[in-house]
């Protein structure tokens, strides 16, 4: 029988290593997402303040992040920071920073639109009941906006997970890097390794992202009801 080469995935602990690599990528996305949610809420609330200077600055921030490819941001932080601040950022640190920077902007915009969508009488009723400003936000506005926010926040997470594939280009050891190591190690014993390894990585990403995007779709449908 012809050698298919699929064994490369199961030789030694190759598959386990790929999974570990996937987890390294996923961890970056999850940490950055958690930070983005926190900072994004603050940024979103900041954007609802009617102040020209704040709105101008946040607009510029948002548009800059939107218009720059994430890879460019990664390059800027990874190569730029090392030179200017003299800090030797690890690739992982740099990518968490960039993803948080990006996620905060996107999340902030989502929070802003969700906060605006809460009708004014909700704020006013809170005030009429003698609640303080933070109480109105904490007990009335935020719980309502979270429901509205959830679908798009989950799809932002999916986008973030997909974007973690870029971090290999600034030298983070994650699933693609591990895949390359496996391919190089079996260059002579299994010349077809690349096909199977990259195929497996492709499917791994799909396996991680698909449930999230389904979840986002379900949440959106629930919200529409």
């Amino acid at each position: 029988m012809q050698d298919l080469g699929i064994q490369v995935l199961f030789r030694g602990n190759n598959f386990l290593r790929l999974l570990e690599g996937m987890w390294a990528a996923l961890r970056i996305a999850l940490i950055a997402m958690a930070l983005s949610v926190l900072l994004g809420f603050l940024f979103g609330m900041l954007m609802t303040i009617h102040n020209r200077a704040i709105q101008c600055i946040s607009r510029i921030y948002l548009e800059t992040v939107r218009i720059m490819p994430q890879l460019v941001l990664l390059f800027l932080v990874y190569f730029g920071a090392a030179k200017h601040m003299g800090v030797n950022l690890s690739g992982e640190m740099a990518s968490i920073l960039v993803f948080t920077f990006w996620g905060t902007a996107e999340m902030g915009d989502l929070v802003r639109s969700a906060l605006i969508a809460v009708p004014t009488h909700q704020y006013e009723s809170g005030a009429a009941l003698g609640m303080k400003k933070w109480q109105t936000y904490f007990y009335i506005v935020i719980p309502q906006s979270v429901r509205r926010l959830l679908p798009s926040a989950v799809s932002l997470l999916t986008r973030m997970i997909k974007t973690t594939s870029l971090v290999v280009l600034i030298g983070v050891v994650e699933v693609v890097k591990v895949g390359k190591q496996i391919i190089d190690a079996s260059r002579y014993t299994n010349p077809k390794a690349a096909l199977w390894v990259y195929g497996a990585i492709f499917l791994l990403y799909f396996a991680v992202c698909f449930p999230f995007s389904k979840l986002a779709a379900v949440l959106e449908r629930k919200l529409a009801e």
């Binding site: 096909l195 990259y198 492709f202 799909f206 698909f210």
Partner: peptide
């Protein structure tokens, strides 16, 4: 649509560029 939306472009490129030549 599901497959393409839930995988990164970079991985698709790797598969196309490094994977497919093997067959």
């Amino acid at each position: 649509i599901e497959l393409s939306r839930n995988t990164p472009l970079l991985i698709q490129l790797y598969f196309l560029y490094f994977g497919l030549p093997k067959i």
